[in-house]
Design a binder for these strands. Structure first.
Lengths: 129, 129
DNA sequence: GCTTGACTTAAAGTACACTTTAAGTGGTAT
DNA sequence: ATACCACTTAAAGTGTACTTTAAGTCAAGC
């Protein structure tokens, strides 16, 4: 699969994919007459990166999750605790998203004529504890 | 409430709060002998901003959600459709977070010695459709 | 065979969201 | 009363994550 196909399939600019390779987030892809050829593993890595970004993790964090124990099997223990920590962070983000959703729902269903009125009426009671 | 107290309560640097005021994300706070005094409304706005950021929205998007129909009640219609759109975006992000969580769970529970092996065994079948 | 367009590189540029700096003010504790 | 620390400002600096540019290569269709 060429970079253009991968780009279309994942909805990710080709420039971004090249950038990820440049900074070592994905392995240097095998070249066929100078162009990158992507396999399933590369596609997984890119999708993993996309989801990791969506989860609010930085490139460095993503790299750390993606690198670990691929080169050194004995590093799996460290990877496991790292991944577990990330799961907790995802959990926190999920709760924040749910709270944001709840606030938007409250503001959407109320009859106030302004946000200020909503705040006075206590529509925002979920927000600040 | 002074900026330091707000900062401590929300876990948000005072510099960030000043920055939010400077760019108009929050209203200019009332000053008491030169220092900002924050009320419940301001606290709500800041918590709203924090959650909005967690939901992956930009400052501009957050501002748009926070501004609308506060000054012009007739703009509520536009605000409503905007907020509904945001709720859909939150929904997408939630699904991505769940997928990320699922992938991490799979990788955590498998017995592979490397990520490459996991990919080959199809542990990643949830990732790329 | 020649045009088209996707690909290649390295390097510079951009956007967003703060964060830091420098210089100064003001209320509180010893 | 004096030291201290949180506060004030505007402006410059920082970090992350790309994105664009410029110059060039290469394979495929007309």
């Amino acid at each position: 699969m060429k970079i253009g196909d991968v780009s279309a399939k994942l909805g990710m600019p080709a420039s971004t994919i090249r950038y990820y390779e440049k900074i070592g987030l994905i392995k240097p892809q095998h070249r066929v007459s100078g162009r990158r050829e992507f396999d399933e593993g590369a596609l997984f890595a890119l999708e993993f990166i996309r989801l990791s970004q969506a989860a609010g993790f930085t490139i460095a964090e993503t790299k750390s999750l993606l690198d670990a124990y691929t080169t050194d099997p004995s590093a799996k223990g460290a990877w496991v605790s790292k991944a577990q920590k990330k799961k907790l962070e995802i959990d926190i983000t999920m709760k924040e998203l749910m709270q944001m959703d709840l606030i938007l729902s409250e503001l959407l269903s109320c009859k106030c004529v302004s946000l200020t009125e909503c705040i006075e009426k206590g529509v925002t009671r979920y927000a600040v504890s």
